[in-house]
């Protein structure tokens, strides 16, 4: 609620109509987000009176921005309800890593979700996400680059604090379909992959603005890795190797 003055005459109803129908996996109507059931404990105030405790049902809450926002509670609930029954890529090849196949269900589920929500004509391939994770973290959910900066990259897809802030910024570059996670939650493989794939889609938009209509998902990966000026970087060769192996 940063602004005090009315800025425009757009009604929330008009804002909502920009979206298509909600994705069938979402738990709340358009323009609302899911908040899980929670308990308020009874407590005694400093004046000695007892404030009674209560338990509140899960709730669909109007987004304060009018944009589509998804929070960890709903990301977790969607994965639990739908991902175990999905089939298809990524390929069950560990690429030589101990945990190489542990996150396939999340990769499969969130790739499908974002492909359907963002309506990309050239859909993202789950195998490409798996190859990207192999090069970013080696499938280590707690991966951190060296150093002590608490805002450094985290988790399977090495998402930085800065990226996380962009993903949830109501007036930022994403414009819509925001993902609200906090830094600690990026250690959770499910939340990291959900946020990371949303970021990869944004990176494709950025690559397209530089390259034009010929932009492919490899360009988005180069942008994701900040190798857009050096697409022949050895890290990109490694990514190409993994991706080729998954497509065999």
């Amino acid at each position: 609620m940063a602004q005090r003055k009315k800025k425009s005459c757009k009604s929330p109803k008009k804002q909502r109509q920009r979206h298509g129908p909600p994705h069938p996996w979402r738990l709340c109507p358009l323009g609302q987000h899911y908040r899980k059931a929670h308990s308020q404990s009874a407590y005694t105030r400093s004046d000695g009176t007892l404030v009674s405790g209560s338990r509140h049902h899960a709730t669909c809450v109007d987004n304060r921005s009018g944009l589509d926002q998804i929070y960890p509670e709903e990301l977790i609930a969607i994965a639990e309800r739908y991902f175990l029954t999905l089939s298809g890529p990524p390929k069950a090849d560990s690429l030589g890593f101990d945990k190489g196949n542990d996150f396939d269900a999340y990769i499969r589920g969130w790739t499908r979700y974002w492909n359907e929500v963002l309506g990309e004509k050239d859909p993202l391939d789950p195998d490409l996400v798996k190859a990207l994770i192999a090069t970013e973290s080696g499938f280590n959910p707690k991966a951190r680059p060296p150093g002590k900066n608490p805002r450094r990259a985290r988790g399977l897809m090495q998402i930085t604090s800065k990226t996380r802030e962009i993903l949830k910024d109501e007036s930022g570059e994403l414009r819509d379909f925001l993902v609200n996670v906090d830094d600690n939650e990026l250690d959770d493989p499910n939340l990291n992959i959900a946020a990371g794939i949303r970021w990869l889609f944004r990176k494709k938009e950025i690559a397209r603005s530089k390259i034009g209509s010929a932009t492919g998902w490899r360009d988005a990966v180069a942008e994701f890795k900040d190798y857009d000026d050096d697409p022949q970087n050895p890290q990109m060769h490694k990514f190409d190797e993994y991706y080729k192996r998954l497509k065999k």
Binding site: M1, K7, S11, S65, E170
Partner: peptide, 12 residues
């Protein structure tokens, strides 16, 4: 003064 969430700042 008044402070409203963006969705209600924009109400017509």
């Amino acid at each position: 003064g008044k402070s409203m969430a963006p969705i209600y700042e924009a109400v017509e």
